[in-house]
Amino acid sequence: MKTVTDANESSWNLIIKPKGKLFDFNFKDLWEYRDLLVLLVRRDIVTVYKQTLLGFFWFIIPPVLNALTYVIIFGMFAKVPTGSDNLILFYLCGVISWGYFADCINRTSSTFRANASIFGKVYFPRLIVPLSSVLSALVKFFVQFAFLLVVMAYFGLTGSAPNIQWHLIWALPIVLLLMALSGMAIGLIISSLTTKYRDLSNIVPFAVQFLMYATPVIYPYTFFPENLRWIFDWNPLSPMIEIFRHLLMGSDRFNLLQLGGSAFFTAVLMVIGLILFSRTERNFMDTV
């Protein structure tokens, strides 16, 4: 009987094994479950503002309120120089682009713990969940971005047109992609490390906030004293925010070399994130 089994060895379509190789991802499996990805994104979008009167406007209201706070406190009271004459646009660009990155980290970092009840009962490629988080954050970002375009159009009509860098606009999708991937990669790493020891998840909100101050989000690169600017130069997130703002309103800097550095950093983080994630997903139910 043993020989019969062995002869048909190739016809097994599923083999369950202990911890596999270092980088053990079944991308075909991931593709099989693409419908689930779509439905999870849909769930995230539809349910967040169910039973609210303002519905979709809640995608826009928080960044607007945040930007207004910054305009009043940093712009009007503290008079932080922004290097731009359009304060509202400056802060709105910063808040929206950083908001997307922070959203990606926050949502993906709780992947295992938030979904433990589902993961414990049914198998599906676990990577679907962080992917869906990044995509639903992207939908939210697009709504905010569309709103940003409306604000820019308003300034255009009232005579203070933003200085859009049309010749560099090709870099916009690249920046967005980098933000999504780096946010997801950091989220994957955090989610994998927090299944056993939860300490890290308590630090995440502070770390994200700290990271924001180490990135030129609510002030420009030039705001920092020169002997501290190396923080921005070495922070791979800076170019993403700076380029985003440069493309839309001509402020800040555009540096191709730094963009390349960010891409490299994102790739490294992603590989680490995927390795940790694939190691965690196989056994996390035993310790979560």
Binding site: N13, P18, K121, V122, Y123, R282
Partner: peptide, 27 residues
């Protein structure tokens, strides 16, 4: 068997489409 956790050693081979119902209404 339903792949929610991995074995420490050994392996399981399966032929065909598997559905495991440990609970209804998951998700």
């Amino acid at each position: 068997l339903s792949r929610t956790t991995a074995p420490t050693s050994g392996q399981i081979k399966i032929r065909g489409k598997v559905a495991s119902l440990l609970e209804v209404g998951t998700g």
